[in-house]
Write a protein that binds this DNA or RNA. Structure first.
Lengths: 146, 146
DNA sequence: ATCTTTGCAAACTTTTTGCACCAAT
DNA sequence: ATTGGTGCAAAAAGTTTGCAAAGAT
């Protein structure tokens, strides 16, 4: 995977090293193609390399985050989710079923602008989750209460 | 405080009880007038009633949240912050200095509408924090790197 | 050879829970 | 008198850290 070689280069350029564990984590992130918890990643990685410890996952994620390759979001109930950095989307998270959907970042552009202009606050794209209720859970709620 | 008597009524109506500990927590929330952690509340409450345990604070916050009197937001790095329910504002949180600012909910109205119309996703107002960099931390960053 | 990364176990932080006692209704 | 709440200590859940050994450069 050329993507991984690019990260390796990036890693070495800053005095870091590309190890099998890190390769596995990157592969897992690529194949997941979205929000995964550290534990999810551990399970994926351990399917191939059972010796890789959860703490290594955390340290790898940390290193990759410093490189700008990975980003994380806190969904609200403890665990964080990680994904490859990609500024083109944001997350909407259902507080009932915990499903996560990605929506185009453009939806947030106006809000971003207002916060910058009105409060000199620079929103960190990709690092904020919108909590609410998804379509199907709204339907379920409807049925239960009405 | 009449506000507290209203909550007491509300509490009793649902089979709960108003206790000194709960009164203290409510007082603390009212006097804080914004986002506080459970630990902050514990400190405030213990200034008057040192015997009140942190677990009581959590259980009280939980009870008040079920009543709709209190809401909480996760700021991203672990601890949650609690505040009296009030749908007129949202939080912007600086990821560098952890400062929290409140901004009018109206800024979010358009985003809310887009998510509803485009994704049938019902945003839970008051339960999402926008992460970014505040004015003064932006200035500090500027100085350091430029 | 050097210096980063790893695996492990143990610490840490924030929140939750079990239990016997206490108190609001 | 009930039944819900409290204090305490201990567990849970998620993440971080110290250390000696292993591995990438």
């Amino acid at each position: 995977m050329e993507r991984i070689e690019a990260v390796a280069k990036n890693l070495r350029a800053s005095g870091g090293r590309m190890t099998p564990a890190r390769k596995s984590v990157l592969n897992a992130l690529v194949s997941a193609r979205s929000h995964v918890t550290a534990e999810d990643l551990m399970n994926m990685v351990q399917a191939e390399s059972p010796e890789v410890h959860l703490s290594t996952i955390y340290r790898t994620l940390d290193a990759l985050e410093n490189l700008g390759v990975v980003d994380h979001v806190h969904l609200g109930h403890g665990r964080a989710v990680y994904h490859l950095a990609d500024n083109a989307h944001q997350h909407i998270v259902c507080e009932l079923c915990s499903s996560v959907e990605e929506v185009p970042a453009t939806l947030f552009a106006q809000l971003e602008r207002s916060l910058m202009e009105g409060y000199q606050f620079k929103v960190r794209m990709n690092h904020f989750a919108v909590i609410g209720t998804c379509k199907s859970c709204q339907a379920r709620e409807q049925k239960q209460s009405g």
